[in-house]
């Protein structure tokens, strides 16, 4: 197994972003590595097909994976996204042979993969910078979306519990809300959880 770690040890301060580079072409890998050497990236190069890919991903915990689209390891990487203990990470795929614009359109939008043309050393850094930025933006939007969904869901639950209280206990809206808030404060629970308990209790009567 060829396994080269080349990093710029002089650079301290901001943590380096670890790149797992999967490429058969040793020359290309070397030149990419040397270009990135003086930046915030640290390149770990694996030639494919590599037996230890999954273990490497586990050990290295790369911040970004760069892979030749022709590598057989692509199927392994694709399947990683379904394994929950692997955190999502940006994947940059490159192709030395194909029209990458057409392929790019066919790769699932929202998947953290971006296809670029051949990785010419002078272009590689801005490409990686952009990929990392896009990925972070995408993750942020995804988190915000799921937060918003969560908030909407809990607002609905609270409304439902309030209406049940008003109906079954003949309380005004204000009284119902205050009763729930008091229970939450007294028991140290979230308002949302109190509402859920109330619904399951009151719905049975």
């Amino acid at each position: 197994m060829r396994h080269n770690v080349l990093t710029n040890d002089k650079q301290v301060g901001t943590p380096l972003l670890r790149i797992l580079l999967i490429d058969d072409d040793q020359q290309r890998a070397d030149s990419i590595t040397s270009v990135l050497n003086n930046s915030r990236y640290k390149v770990i190069h694996l030639a494919s097909p590599d037996m230890a890919l999954l273990k490497q991903v586990d050990d290295i915990k790369p911040d970004i994976i760069v892979i030749d689209i022709e590598s057989p390891s692509r199927d392994i990487l694709d399947s990683l996204s379904t394994i929950s203990h692997y955190n999502p990470k940006p994947v940059v795929m490159f192709s030395a042979q194909e029209d990458t614009n057409t392929i790019n359109q066919s790769i699932a939008s929202g998947v953290s993969a971006y296809v670029v043309g051949d990785l010419e050393p002078e272009r590689v850094k801005p490409i990686l910078d952009a990929a990392v930025a896009r990925f972070r933006e995408y993750q942020k939007i995804k988190t915000e979306l799921s937060d918003t969904k969560q908030q909407l869901a809990s607002r609905n639950t609270i409304d439902q519990a309030k209406r049940l209280l008003m109906k079954k206990k003949k309380l005004s809206e204000d009284e119902a809300f205050k009763a729930m808030r008091k229970t939450a404060m007294d028991t140290g629970q979230k308002l949302d959880d109190v509402a859920k308990t109330l619904i399951s209790l009151l719905d049975n009567f």
């Binding site: 390891s73 199927d75 029209d99 392929i103 066919s106």
Partner: peptide
């Protein structure tokens, strides 16, 4: 082709 995912993507893209 070396991987099923890449074969699929190339077919989808018309390559």
């Amino acid at each position: 082709q070396n991987s099923w995912s890449t074969l699929r993507d190339k077919l989808h893209a018309g390559l």
